[in-house]
Design a protein around this nucleic acid. Structure first.
Lengths: 242, 242
DNA sequence: GTCGTAAGACTTACGATGTAAGGGAGCGAT
DNA sequence: ATCGCTCCCTTACATCGTAAGTCTTACGAC
């Protein structure tokens, strides 16, 4: 049959399993058949392999879930890179952040399972941290305080990726070395966390006052809606005035 | 042993199982041990019964999940009732909505699993519909258009209960009779839906343009953050001026 | 060649979980 | 007594993640 196999085996030589191949197949499978269909056996089938073989390359299913989220954020980073550096002046921070968020959303629409997984695993992969760091950088360039940026991140993050569950997040403190390590590849975020943590000594990185964050985001929405309402009323009463 | 049982049975006479008793036990169990611990067998244990006995009162586990969400919204309704009718004039709509949202959140903090379940089951129980209807009513009293209310609901709803997954919601059309039925116990919501659906004929109730809703909510946040930024800048440069 | 060795896949098996199917126990009405 | 209804129990199965151990293959050393 065509090229005679070097082996006496009749089947194709089968490209070897790797962590990357497994994760890509997992992502594809979830895209195609939904998150529920992503089982170890189905994934193994997809790879032409037995379920337990996967465990040689990844320790367990949670590692796979973390891995596919990581892949997704890599895609988001690629999307962001594709539309240029997008650093902005003070007035333009909003458009820059908007572009990044909508870019992320475009990717997430291709992987609708991703927010679900992010939510239930609270994963904080390096790729995700870098993404957030970029947003912090843009905001910082606009002159915002770290405190304001911090609240804003909660408000926006809640909207884009899944994490609804600030509900009693019980934010566990991270291993103490982590902040220093973060400094290298997420400097803006690290700086923000250092300052915010400084103000509120308990809860070093993990996390903030949920109720405060919740009300902050809620009030942003309510204020915005109120302005829309006033605009409607003005429109109704006097479009005469222009 | 104490009061001799009327039966020859040695154990207590055991209050009979009912749908309500099952759901309450399920809610309590999830509160105490987490959503993962809510299994049919654990729930049965909790009730002093075998797992399969539950199926006489509820058809399957999904019905239980829907049921506990319903219970939760009943609690939210009670919370809302406890703080008075809270109808407001045009200017006060915001405070009234705020109070309702925060009331709902207080309940959801007692049941951290609830948003997760709401999210993954997209349940629309009558109690939930009534809750939303109340908010629509308050907003309507302030003179807002149905269209604005509709967008606002998306923005706020996304924040309070889980539903992150407007991501490709693929909003399925509801059974056609549903809107008329809703008219009786959720008049404001029904009116809004009738008008919104009228403007956009496809997708009768189910649902709206995700991208539009997403951007609406995002822009509310971005605008609000921008105003906070300007306030900070003003504060920094000239607190002299007052 | 032929071995030893280790990487990498496979086999088997176990304990959860949701639930289909059917088996009664109890009891009021006839 | 016996039927029939309500309500609970027993048994069993498919599917899931994964622990434990085995077999296969490739390859370097002799």
């Amino acid at each position: 049959m065509g090229p005679k196999a070097a082996e006496t085996r009749t089947s194709a030589p089968r490209t070897p399993l790797t962590r990357e191949r497994v994760l890509r197949a997992a992502s594809d499978l979830a895209d195609r058949d939904g998150l529920d269909a992503l089982t170890m056996r189905a994934l193994a089938d997809e790879l032409g392999v037995e379920a337990m073989s996967i465990y040689y390359h990844l320790p367990n299913k949670n590692a796979i879930l973390d891995g596919v989220v990581e892949l997704t954020f890599a895609e988001i980073a690629a999307e962001a890179a594709a539309q240029g550096p997008a650093r902005a002046d003070a007035a333009g921070w909003s458009a820059a952040v908007r572009a990044r968020i909508l870019g992320a959303r475009r990717v997430l629409l291709r992987h609708p399972w991703a927010p679900v997984v992010i939510d239930q695993r609270k994963s904080f992969s390096p790729a995700m941290v870098r993404h957030v760091d970029g947003i912090v950088g843009v905001m910082r360039d606009s002159g915002m305080s770290h405190d304001l940026i911090h609240h804003s991140l909660h408000a926006i993050g809640n909207r884009v990726y899944g994490y609804v569950q600030e509900l009693s997040d019980d934010g566990q403190a991270p291993p103490p070395g982590q902040l220093e390590q973060m400094q290298s590849f997420a400097p803006h975020l690290a700086a923000m966390l250092a300052e915010v943590a400084h103000v509120d000594p308990e809860s070093t990185l993990g996390w903030c006052d949920d109720q405060t964050e919740f009300e902050f985001g809620l009030d942003l929405l309510l204020e915005g809606i109120e302005r829309r309402r006033l605009a409607e009323a003005a429109e109704r009463s006097g479009p005469a005035d222009r």
